[in-house]
């Protein structure tokens, strides 16, 4: 029997970085730890926005036990990266964005474009079309 498919985790805003690197560590570069978007989101909801795990699980549309597992996995990955001086890279995983985000490569801002067609989206500050789409698919 195949395992039950995982539900998508709703994520609101994308992380504002591509990853983290240890500094002051000169023994060459280690294998990166891949942190999923939803793990970053779980950590942010719990420890930055100070929600309880059950509130945060409702925000992400998953059950409370699933949230706890996700949060634990986020903590373990970050602890692993710190303990072994490994860089962290963020990866999409099973994150579902509640709205489409764009990242302007020129001025490095993130924005949404409600009600605008994909082909005519431009950066609201510099009008550049050099955008990276951070969407569900």
């Amino acid at each position: 029997m195949s395992p039950r498919p995982k539900n998508n985790r709703t994520v609101f805003d994308p992380p504002k970085f591509k990853g983290y690197k240890p500094f002051g560590y000169y023994a060459g570069e280690n294998e990166p730890v891949f942190l999923f978007f939803e793990e970053y989101a779980a950590l942010k909801l719990c420890d930055y926005e100070l929600m309880t795990q059950s509130q945060a699980s409702q925000v992400m549309n998953i059950s409370r036990p699933t949230f706890t597992r996700l949060y634990e996995s986020a903590r373990r990955k970050i602890a692993l990266a710190l303990a072994e001086a490994r860089p962290i890279e963020v990866e999409k995983g099973r994150a579902y964005f509640s709205n489409d985000w764009y990242n302007c490569r020129a001025c490095n801002i993130f924005f949404t474009a409600p009600g605008i067609e994909l082909s005519s989206v431009r950066c609201p500050l510099c009008q550049s079309k050099n955008l990276e789409e951070i969407t569900t698919n």
Partner: peptide
Amino acid sequence: QIQMIIHPD
């Protein structure tokens, strides 16, 4: 339907 702009800097 309000556009959000995150300016990390």
